[in-house]
């Protein structure tokens, strides 16, 4: 086999792209998080013409562009609509396994994404098949809350 010519060896240069930010939540999401942080409750916003309650709270209806009006308390119980069990390690993301899913809280018409904790994941295939039944879940608030979506997570109300 021919020895590679060192002059034509491909060169790659190591780099990083880790800028820091402070993400401004906006008026509506700020209130959504402050309600969780201060009052331990999840609030949505109502679309006046249709009555739909949007959770997480939005300042306008995504479909009609109509401004939302009153704030409505929802949950803390709801239904796990769709989910996945992340089972592989991806660089830069949390260690597996864990469950995330969209939950429609009681009184809401849209679904919020969060972790679902406390599920037995020793057999992921079995856990996945059980979670397909759209189990009931409850929002559990952290003791220390900092005003972000991870101030709460979901747990199954009854074991599966």
């Amino acid at each position: 086999m021919q020895t590679p010519d060192p002059i034509s060896k491909p060169i790659t240069i190591a780099g990083h792209w880790n800028f820091e930010y402070r993400y401004f939540a906006g008026a509506v999401a700020s209130r959504f998080f402050n309600e969780i942080k201060i009052n331990r409750r999840i609030m949505g916003t109502r679309v006046p013409s249709t009555g739909r309650v949007l959770v997480p709270a939005r300042s306008f209806c995504d479909a009609s562009y109509e401004r939302t009006g009153e704030w409505v308390e929802v949950g803390p119980e709801g239904t796990l609509d769709i989910f996945t069990i992340v089972a592989a390690k991806f660089p830069g993301l949390p260690d597996p396994p864990f469950v995330m899913g969209y939950v429609t809280l009681d009184g809401a018409d849209t679904a919020v994404l969060n972790y679902v904790r406390g599920v037995d994941l020793t057999d992921i295939e079995a856990a996945g098949n059980k979670l397909m039944a759209k189990p009931r879940v409850r929002a559990i608030f952290s003791d220390v809350r900092e005003g972000r979506i991870t101030d709460f997570h979901f747990e199954l109300i009854a074991p599966i």
């Binding site: 930010y21 996945t84 991806f90 995330m100 996945g128 397909m132 979506i149």
Partner: peptide, 20 residues
């Protein structure tokens, strides 16, 4: 980054949730 990024959703988990 306000409502969803913290839950470590990626394109794979996004598609997996629609698959369920």
């Amino acid at each position: 980054p306000i409502y969803e990024k913290d839950i470590s959703i990626s394109t794979i988990s996004m598609i997996a949730m629609r698959a369920t």
